[in-house]
């Protein structure tokens, strides 16, 4: 039973990550490979403030989200004039920088050893001591992120994003400030990714840099692309299917290292297959 709840928590965690990445990949046509970096920034920000300062769970989540907004803002600043695959390469490079920041800055992040002893989530002083309560917390956060993202996607702001995805020049000619919109959507997406990170580090109570590599970025991207970028439910379906696949591979008795390789081959094949199916654009308009 605990195991099933744990898998549910993972579903909700990845649902937050994919929904937030979809704001960029699906709705705005910005192919970002730095999402795991932002996720890591959130996780570490929460871990650092809650182990060094006497700060409540909600406070550390808020600080983590603020950190995510700030870093994501900085990432999006150089994006002016970098479109398509050049944006992807830029985020690729920044993902590497973020990972090495987490991995290398040992005074602050503990280096490869990570940070342990992060307090478990507690809402208004009441510690969530059963897994079911934690699952509920993750579910409600995922619900909020989902509702907010859906509102954004269907709002006038979302329509500007869609226009930006289809044709940046035309959007500018209609008087829309595409650079500002890009920065805004990146900041929003960064906040949600950092939220996922903060929840994760309070849930596991331990963070180390290996969870926030470029491979993790590719995994989140594969989930979004497999589920269907730009659709409301697609990214969540992608998250559920790839998390289930990872868990299912545990049960068929393959050694852990081989299972990891097999899983990644499936992600790779999924990416190729989807490009074959929708070569012109990934989002389903």
């Amino acid at each position: 039973m605990d195991y099933l709840l744990h898998v549910l928590v993972l579903f909700f965690l990845y649902a937050i990550l994919t929904t937030s990445l979809d704001l960029l990949v699906g709705h705005s046509g910005l192919l970002s490979i730095a999402h795991a970096g932002l996720y890591g920034i959130g996780a570490y920000a929460a871990a650092i403030v809650s182990t060094h300062f006497d700060i409540s769970f909600l406070g550390s989540v808020a600080i983590a989200m603020l950190a995510g907004v700030l870093v994501s803002f900085c990432i999006s600043l150089p994006s002016r004039g970098l479109k398509g695959d050049y944006f992807a390469v830029l985020t690729f490079a920044l993902q590497m920088v973020l990972f090495h920041l987490l991995n290398g800055w040992d005074r602050l992040t503990g280096g490869p050893l990570g940070i342990s002893g992060i307090p478990a989530p507690a809402v208004f002083g009441a510690e969530l001591d059963t897994l079911a309560e934690t699952t509920l917390l993750f579910a409600s956060c995922a619900g909020v992120v989902f509702a907010l993202s859906r509102n954004v996607a269907t709002s006038p702001f979302g329509r500007v994003l869609h226009a930006l995805r289809e044709d940046e020049g035309l959007t500018q000619s209609l008087g829309k400030h595409t650079y500002r919109v890009t920065i805004q959507v990146c900041a929003m997406s960064g906040a949600f990714a950092a939220l996922a990170g903060a929840l994760y580090s309070h849930y596991i109570t331990y963070v180390d840099p290996t969870g926030f590599t470029v491979v993790e970025s590719i995994l989140i991207l594969a989930m979004v692309i497999l589920g269907g970028p730009g659709t409301i439910l697609g990214p969540i379906i992608g998250a559920i299917s790839l998390v289930s696949l990872a868990e299912a591979l545990r049960f068929i008795g393959i050694p852990a290292s081989e299972a990891a390789s097999l899983r990644q081959i499936v992600y790779g094949l999924a990416l190729i297959a989807i490009v074959f199916l929708r070569p012109r654009g990934l989002a389903r308009a």
Binding site: V215, I218, S261, Q264, G268, I272, V275, R278, P279, G281
Partner: peptide, 30 residues
């Protein structure tokens, strides 16, 4: 080549190549 014939976008080619790289690396590791 098939992707080019389908007029794949540059992002599409990037992603497909990235997918291939992931497959090859993990194939070697297997």
């Amino acid at each position: 080549r098939p992707l080019r014939r389908r007029n794949a976008s540059r992002e599409g080619m990037f992603l497909a190549a990235l997918g291939l790289m992931v497959c090859i690396q993990n194939g070697v590791s297997l």
